[in-house]
Amino acid sequence: MIAFSNVNRDFLVGDQQVHALRDINLTLGAGEYVSIMGPSGSGKSTLLNLIGLLDRPSSGVYKLDGLDVTTLDDEEQARVRREKIGFVFQFFHLVPRLTAAMNIELPLILGGVEVEERKERVAKLLESYGLKDRAEHRPEQLSGGQRQRVAIARATIMHPSVLLADEPTGNLDSATGKEVIRLLEQLTEQGVTLIMVTHDRDNGNRALRQITMVDGRIVGDKRKSD
């Protein structure tokens, strides 16, 4: 469902051309659990941004569910992002002035869903993520683990087919981090494709498919045989 062929991404830093991604060929199926590992500056985040349509490749073709999304305009890309892709960030990126419930509701608001349906879906999600009594709290009143759970709830409320997680445990202690990882893994069991960029070898090794990147190239792609 995700297919990269000969994708390059170049940046111009000063007057120097930086090749963030070189000739990426990658195919990911529905419901896969993938970790992307590698040293800093190896292009992991750039790859994730390309998958999430936050960035456009300099060359090459990216097909999502058979559709060549690189040719879409901003408006159409935004729609694809809204409907098919969920993001989980290292720094949570919750809107500080909104309550937990409202943060979760945000994608539904942007999608123009009716108020009653919104409230219903948010309530259901709060319940299943154990955040019911935290619904009216603002992010600063939540613990790191709670914040990340709110962020995950927000990422999944539109039922995306792809969940992109950039260092989701990077800002959490290891116990909370494990909790968050388990939550994400549960989602893959429901058929969501999880792509997780991580520095943490333990977390990365839990993934069923492990991609290693160095200098903008994929240098390792192994599957866990279980």
Binding site: G52, L54, D74, E75, A78, R79, V80, R81, R82, E83, I85, F87, H93, V95, L106, P107, L110, G111, R154, M158
Partner: peptide, 16 residues
């Protein structure tokens, strides 16, 4: 800036 970036990631088109 961050909030705007987030809204974009959540699928808000530029016009929105």
């Amino acid at each position: 800036t961050q909030e705007i970036g987030l809204l974009k990631a959540l699928g808000a088109p530029p016009a929105q």
